[in-house]
Structures are given as structure tokens and as C-alpha cells.
Design a protein around this nucleic acid. Structure first.
Lengths: 110, 110
DNA sequence: GACATATATTCCTATATAGGAATATATTTT
DNA sequence: AAAATATATTCCTATATAGGAATATATGTC
């Protein structure tokens, strides 16, 4: 079988770097497609397609304003990713702590 | 062009649900392949392949013990994902706050 | 209504899978 | 060294892209 569809879930949708960039660009304020195209120096059809994927998995919302479409990030959509990653937070904290301890031990010996 | 290789980065590697499950299973302690196979009720070659991908992007470490290979999660490898997701934390906090406010306003009106 | 602007969609293609089956490799045991 | 155990790798195939080009759709303006 092939890989799962990018539209199937948030993880797959965000596996694409361009889509992560778009989402970060839309984090603070809503923007029309044309501005994204300029900001990311990408083609218009490409951006539209990426926005389509982000919309399907609920990571962005759209609003029509005249002939523009204003897109904005739907932050809560990222929670599945955040929650998954956060599970491991304590482990790398410990890991870094051990590195620090070893560094200090080494320091002691000098 | 096709999608980026799963081995290219952490985001792509973790787009696959099975790999996320494997990583969570390896979070607390190192385990031999056979145990993962049993725990996740998957085929041995399948698990081996997934472990190969996780290893290539630095999400797991291996250690040989007799004829076993002990795998463990390398938590820090998840930081790119965590950092990305964390960027949006403040937004959904605000978003939830607004939902709460609206709910309270509504409550007031009754 | 003709024209311009903004965006979405369709069509095509090369490619990187993921899964299954079969096989190869490494290590221990007898 | 033969057999058994544990794991990795190879081979094959169906499929879901992502990108480019061309086109369609919707809306505003003259």
C-alpha cells in the first residue's frame, strides 16, 4: 500500500514543510492567498492546494471578503501534535540533565 | 514530484501512526524487536522497517544484546515537532479563553 | 456586459512509499 | 556444524501524492 493520505490527519498534513510555513505565516493574522504566495515565494496553484489540505484537516479556516479569501490558522488543530510531543518532554529533560551532570563531573575532575 | 521521503525528517517519519505507537512504546524502557511485534500485534518485517526509519531520523537508538536488538526512544529527536507545536500554544489558549468568555456572557444573560 | 483580478480545480507525471512474501544475516544452543 | 532463534533486507505492487501547466470559477470594475 501507499502512504496514508495527507488529508487523513494533522500529522500527515504537517509532514510537508511548505504547509508548516504557511501555517506559521497565518498564526498571527488572517491573510489572503495572494499574500501567502508573495511571502513564501511559491506558485499560486501550489499555495491553493496546500491551503486545501490544511483546510480539510481543520488546521485553517477561510472567510470570503470580496474576491479575496482570508485564511487564518486554527491553532487548536495542532493540539494532537502538541500532546504527542509533550509526552516526551520529561524524557529529554532528564536526558539533558544527565548530559549536564556528566559535564559538571568532568569539570570537577579538572 | 512525489512526497518527501519519510527518512528525510522527523515530521515525515512520525506521519505514520504505527511509528508513533512504536515510539510511545519505547518511551519508558528499551525493548527488543520481538516485544514490539507482540505489543503492537504487527508483523516482524513491518516493525523492523519502521524501526529502520525511526533510526535513520534519529528517533531511536539501538544496542545489541546477544541475538536481540534493544531499541529505545531518543526523546530529544522529537523536539523539532514539539517546538513547532509549542509556537501555537498561546493561540489556542486565547481561543479557548474566548470560548469560555462567550459561555460566561451567555450565562450572564440568562 | 466586457475585462481584470483572485483563487480553485483539473490533468498529467515521476516518485516514494507501505505492506506482504520470501529470503538473508547474525547469534546462540545443542 | 547443524538447528533454532531474532532480526534485517530484498523484491514486488498498488497508491497517494506534489509539482507544473492549463483552465475554470467567482467577484469586482469600467
Amino acid at each position: 500500500m501507499a502512504r496514508a493520505a495527507t488529508t487523513s490527519d494533522v500529522f500527515n498534513a504537517l509532514a510537508e514543510p511548505r504547509r508548516r510555513e504557511i501555517l506559521m505565516f497565518l498564526a498571527d493574522a488572517e491573510k489572503p492567498v495572494g499574500e501567502i504566495v508573495v511571502a513564501l515565494a511559491d506558485g499560486q496553484p501550489s499555495v491553493s492546494k496546500h491551503l486545501g489540505v490544511l483546510r480539510k484537516v481543520g488546521l485553517v479556516r477561510v472567510r470570503r471578503v470580496g474576491r479575496h479569501r482570508m485564511y487564518r490558522a486554527n491553532a487548536v488543530g495542532i493540539r494532537p501534535l502538541y500532546d504527542f510531543a509533550k509526552t516526551f518532554e520529561k524524557y529529554w529533560t532528564h536526558q539533558l540533565l544527565r548530559v549536564k551532570e556528566r559535564a559538571e563531573e568532568k569539570e570537577q575532575r579538572t
